[in-house]
């Protein structure tokens, strides 16, 4: 991996920005890489679709905005519709399988789905669905190690929610590793 450009998208309140922050934090603080995070400030952020743009690289990043999206994480239909055109050919799509129905994808795109909300509900807290998706993303892409990601989760989420967030991460990670 030299540089990976990604967008994490969903609706406001799903923890989209936190998810982006965790990827960047894991890469930059715990794996000695470089990372940038930009939140969508444009009019597209109003009314539902929310996005975080994250770049992770081995070398310093000179421009923090995503120009060609290598990886798109989509946790809502509206965000999928809004941002899938930015996914480049041969990119990776990760989507919430009960909330997103994907349409025609750019050529060569590999898509992976995870029922992150259902898994989170099964754990007892729907709010950790983004962390389930983060675990799944980690297993699918291998951009950052699960250990670094878990350290970032541990250092960021409120005390008292850490253990369930880590479990949510493991569930998402295992979901891909178990080939589900």
């Amino acid at each position: 991996m030299s540089t990976k450009q990604m967008k994490i998208t969903g609706f406001g309140g799903q923890g989209i920005i936190l998810t982006g922050m965790l990827i960047g934090k894991a890469a930059s603080i715990y794996e000695n890489k470089y990372a940038t995070l930009i939140q969508s400030f444009g009019p597209e952020a109003r009314g539902g679709a929310c996005q975080a743009q994250v770049i992770v690289a081995d070398d310093p990043i000179l421009y923090p905005y995503v120009r060609e999206c290598d990886i798109l994480i989509s946790l809502s239909q509206e965000s999928y519709t809004t941002y899938v055109p930015s996914l480049k050919e041969d990119g990776v799509l990760i989507y919430e399988e009960n909330l997103v129905i994907p349409g025609k994808l750019p050529k060569g795109v590999k898509s992976f789905s995870v029922p992150s909300t259902a898994i989170a509900e099964d754990l007892g807290r729907k709010i950790v669905a983004n962390i389930v998706a983060l675990g799944f993303f980690t297993a699918v892409t291998g951009i950052v190690s699960p250990e670094a990601m878990k350290k970032a989760v541990q250092a960021t989420v409120p005390k008292g929610t850490t253990e369930l967030n880590l479990r949510a991460f493991d569930k998402g990670f295992e979901h891909h590793k178990n080939g589900k």
Binding site: G13, G15, I17, F41, C50, R125, V157, P158, G160
Partner: peptide, 27 residues
């Protein structure tokens, strides 16, 4: 004691603040 809802409310507020206001300086 562990006040379950209070901890999760904190995370919920974090999500709302970050996703809607873009203020994630406190993370």
């Amino acid at each position: 004691s562990h006040m379950v809802d209070a901890h999760w409310k904190e995370l919920e507020n974090m999500h709302l603040q970050d996703d809607f206001s873009g203020d994630f300086s406190g993370m």
